[in-house]
Design a protein around this nucleic acid. Structure first.
Lengths: 236, 236
DNA sequence: ATGAAACCTGACCAAACGGTCAAATTGAGC
DNA sequence: GCTCAATTTGACCGTTTGGTCAGGTTTCAT
């Protein structure tokens, strides 16, 4: 496995369908133009699902397209008919979950009550960890490896979003609603890490407590503990 | 890459040196018996170091013994002279850092002052994240993948240690020194996740803040923020 | 100095991997 | 039922990878 991922080469030839010339290969379905078939939709979805499972378990380097294909219930060749390379699958999976991933932070509202807003943010993040632990682990794996694919997003839109929300928190501090010692960015990191921990380190949590977030009682316990401790630490 | 790691097979033949029979292979230096040579000590150390670097960057599946050998400044063949398989290197690296990894938690002392003890624990963990981020990332990678190698430790000694320290925290609560709503295990998770975040998600932290824990100022900031928030959240 | 053990190397191997290709099969509109 | 594009397959290929092996070189105690 190449350490620095190979170039994406998203569409090696990009052949338009209605060209009638060259009788040669016409591979790759609807490469971005035109509406996808029902079969395409179904199979792409299966591939993304299986890809998420494999990539989150073994990382980019440890995953194999053969196993992904098996997980998606199709042959390796057929998988490669829908996505030309392993890297493209990886990118597609990542892109597919990125929005959902960042959504909760976007909802932090200056005009709201800090206590309610932050508690809600923690709950939202914990909910995602509970319901989508594989996505959490995929992101963790990606960042662990130096974020070869999502670094642009981190430096771009995420950075913007974070500085925006840091301003919100700073406004709350200025309004005397949060303790003056609160550091906005570090508070965001604290919430991220604390909530994602239950997904990313699920194995460890399970080994130590015998429970995961799938256990409603346990999830409620974690939620209460995090909300109480973090809010208790930052509310004025 | 096999998903469930292949059997360790720590020493395929285990040939004792002074056997004088079979003129064939006598590979593998001091397989657990007898004191190691100076060269052995040096090379094994180099291999473990390079292995930590590779495994933490690419995970078990993504790392290659060839790159590890290159990182250790020796040929692949020579590396395999010291460690028979990739899995054995991985286990050795993991084992080599395990003690250091768990040490800070062991120091939590019931007789001490909770504020000082917890603050110290946070500082210790943050120090390790700052000075040994690769070890942190290796553990994260291992746990992410389901802890195939360290699960026994998690279920065994770590579980014991955690329940021990949870009792310590519970004693502090009973003594009225911590808020009654504090959940010991979740507090431990909170401290782990918050401190390790700066190592495991270093790339993200760097992209968002332009800093890492290597920056003394930033580290002090993180430390102050974590200590203030967490202690503020749990102290009575 | 010498001999044995320790150390090191390059050539080699089988399996696994990512990816290609020609051809067979299926499906949908007519 | 015909036709043509969409879909699926299995055989195949070059590379990478983990690991073996026979033999060469260095180290070190005597």
């Amino acid at each position: 496995m190449s350490p620095t991922r190979s170039t994406p080469k998203s569409s090696p030839l990009k052949r338009k369908p209605g060209l009638r010339s060259a009788p040669a290969a016409r591979q790759v379905p609807a490469d971005s133009d035109a509406k996808p078939t029902r079969i395409q939709e179904r199979n792409r979805a299966r591939i993304l699902e299986a890809g998420l499972s494999e990539f989150s378990r073994f990382g980019f380097g440890g995953a194999t397209i053969e196993k992904i294909a098996a997980g998606a219930g199709m042959s390796k060749s057929n998988l490669l008919y829908y996505y030309p390379t392993k890297t493209v699958i990886y990118e597609a999976v990542l892109e597919h979950i990125l929005d959902t991933w960042l959504a909760p932070l976007r909802m932090l509202d200056v005009t709201g009550d800090p206590a309610a807003e932050l508690a809600d943010y923690i709950r939202q993040k914990l909910k995602i960890s509970a319901e989508w632990p594989e996505a959490s682990r995929l992101f963790a794996s990606e960042i662990l490896q130096g974020a070869p694919q999502v670094k642009p997003v981190l430096q771009g839109s995420l950075r913007l979003l974070v500085s925006e929300k840091a301003a919100v928190i700073r406004a709350w501090i200025a309004a005397g609603k949060l303790k003056p010692h609160v550091e906005p960015v570090h508070l965001i990191f604290l919430i991220w890490s604390a909530t994602q921990h239950y997904a990313d380190f699920e194995t460890q949590v399970l080994a130590l407590t015998g429970k995961t977030l799938k256990d409603e009682t346990f999830r409620g316990e974690a939620e209460a503990a995090l909300v109480a401790t973090i809010l208790g630490g930052v509310l004025a």
